[in-house]
């Protein structure tokens, strides 16, 4: 009987060590959405520690500077609700243009439904539209063409948000800018036609 009691005591103690030994305040490094692992630097009274391994944590109370591993059940217990509240990650799309104007290439025109689908994934979408040109023609002409390209995409997005989401003008957040020929994707000399540089970059947050 006593032996069973001792065994039980050992089991309970082990269980407490496993589940209850994580410090009160701590930080855990996780895998990035792209599958890589970043780094987190922590400085406290104990000094500086760099976390570089996924699912390792470090105490923030200054009581220990030794990283420890954090298992899935502990992560769920402490962060399940925070992780469930995560907004969709921002996404980007590139559309390409025929030379000199706001006409999309064939292969980009068919991407418009994908753009609209992307919009639907985001609650209260905050959108950035950046227009670019190649180096054909004058700088100020290209500034204007870049803006016209960006504006034409912004118009499609605005129309969609009003029609499909019944959003009011004041709730729609679209930032439209032109980088003209100042931000080339493919570096070229001046006055060079380059299809990859004639583009609009859309980010939906």
């Amino acid at each position: 009987m006593i032996r069973y009691f001792q065994l039980w005591l050992v089991v309970v103690t082990a269980w407490m060590i496993v589940t209850g030994c994580s410090p009160k305040s701590y930080v855990v490094l996780m895998d990035s959405p792209d599958g890589t692992t970043g780094k987190v630097a922590v400085s406290s009274a104990q000094g500086n520690v760099l976390l570089a391994k996924s699912r390792t944590g470090i105490d923030l109370d200054g009581s220990s500077d030794v990283p420890f591993s954090v298992d899935e059940s502990q992560i769920q217990k402490d962060f399940g609700e925070a992780m469930a509240a995560r907004p969709p990650l921002p996404t980007s799309l590139m559309l390409y243009y025929k030379q000199g104007g706001t006409e999309l290439t064939e292969s980009s025109r068919v991407l418009i439904p994908a753009l609209l689908k992307m919009l639907r994934m985001h609650p209260a979408p905050d959108i950035s539209v950046i227009g670019h040109t190649d180096t054909m023609g004058e700088d100020d002409f290209n500034e204007r063409v870049g803006l016209e390209r960006a504006q034409s995409v912004a118009d499609i997005i605005r129309g969609e948000l009003k029609k499909e989401r019944k959003m009011k003008e004041e709730d729609i957040h679209i930032t439209v800018v032109s980088h003209g020929e100042r931000n080339l994707l493919i570096a070229t000399p001046d006055n060079t036609p380059e299809p990859k540089n004639r583009r609009v970059e859309i980010t939906v947050r």
């Binding site: 895998d31 987190v40 922590v42 109370d61 992560i75």
Partner: peptide, 19 residues
């Protein structure tokens, strides 16, 4: 900043608990 430490983000994804 947390009450007793400073976390510097050198990478992408991390979790913080403060009691």
């Amino acid at each position: 900043k947390t009450p007793s430490a400073m976390i510097g983000c050198r990478g992408t994804h991390f979790l913080v608990k403060v009691v």
